[in-house]
Design a protein around this nucleic acid. Sequence first.
DNA 1: TTGTTCTCACCTAGGTGATAATCT
DNA 2: AGATTATCACCTAGGTGAGAACAA
Lengths: 233, 233
Amino acid sequence: MIITKAGRRMFPAMRVKISGLDPHQQYYIAMDIVPVDNKRYRYVYHSSKWMVAGNADSPVPPRVYIHPDSPASGETWMRQVISFDKLKLTNNELDDQGHIILHSMHKYQPRVHVIRKDCGDDLSPIKPVPTGEGVKAFSFPETVFTTVTAYQNQQITRLKIDRNPFAKGFRDSGRNRMGLEALVESYAFWRPSLRTLTFEDIPGIPKQGPTLYGPSQPSCVLSPAMWFPQPWP
Amino acid sequence: MIITKAGRRMFPAMRVKISGLDPHQQYYIAMDIVPVDNKRYRYVYHSSKWMVAGNADSPVPPRVYIHPDSPASGETWMRQVISFDKLKLTNNELDDQGHIILHSMHKYQPRVHVIRKDCGDDLSPIKPVPTGEGVKAFSFPETVFTTVTAYQNQQITRLKIDRNPFAKGFRDSGRNRMGLEALVESYAFWRPSLRTLTFEDIPGIPKQGPTLYGPSQPSCVLSPAMWFPQPWP
DNA sequence: TTGTTCTCACCTAGGTGATAATCT
DNA sequence: AGATTATCACCTAGGTGAGAACAA
């Protein structure tokens, strides 16, 4: 994923559907992005692979993207596809625009957080997301990405150009698209339909008592058609 | 003000500053637009005046513009200038975009509503704003306007073109601006600085008991520099 | 005649990768 | 040598009044 000083959107954006919330309870929904490991990477062109190139840089200030519809009722959240397309990434450790700060050439995992309103009193764009009762995090392994300041691989560049409407100016409409389409569609992680993740019960909540989120356990599903997978830069 | 079928913004937009709220109380802020009288108007060009031209058309479905930052704490509302620039007007009585529906060639008064969160449970874009305890409305007489589908007066057209950034394409930079500027600045309602409105205590609230909004009475001030006055179409 | 609708050129505002210059 | 930055042309998305066509 490209990161810049000014802040750059993720493409494709994370889009999820959530179910199992209490329709009449208020929630915040937020995203943060955590390191996958403690390594720094470099891209080896001739083998088309990311290789470990030392240990990770020192940690950056914690940032959280609070979804702009927050807070909203469970009913509202469950009715829509929740899109994080306004979220921006930056490599500027002194950023004051509230963007998410990351190191270039590192691997990251986005996380979606569902926070019951009464547990989100100290929720802040510049503090770590609280954990514990009333808060649940979801991660989708297929959304792990590597940060760069310039694309390392012509295939990923084409993928972005062909799918991002804002990059239409770079499209080569005469070019044979089969190479790209075949690549995307054959990829192991690619799914034309929704992928559902199940997850553990929330610790500390009695199964029979008043449920944390509602009658059913909450679940979070990654929306189709807009995400594509790792090992590219 | 121009109204269209698709919906058109007001220009200039209403911008207010609010004070006297309880910093830790949550509020909705909303705008609606009510008829000034029961008349329909026509513009008489040779006298440059709006004249009564019969009784008002039948009422339109009630619409409310809920400020997109709602709900928010009194602290948040008081810290910023509250702008209604995304609000749109339409003459389409069957509008399903949530725009405010008005009749052309009628006179209207925009109102700002401050609604304590616990009194806004049935607040809806398609229902009248509730009244009573915990709700307060503000009107600024200098914001009364007449609706049209096409400007009736070349002076108002010039004013809009010269001040709305989206109309820059129609500006005639070689034109002598003194006529316009003199007109605006000499106008009785025009003020280069903030105009403060005071207003009555809220009925039914004991003066000594817990106050409705906070330690002081709430007040609402129209922001300067972006509003100009009536008798033009 | 008068008011309304539709389409248009011309803007604002801002999201893309390319590219050349710069940094380390 | 490899990574980063600044600037750019080229887009998306949408807010203007002009003016012709249309309606009552």
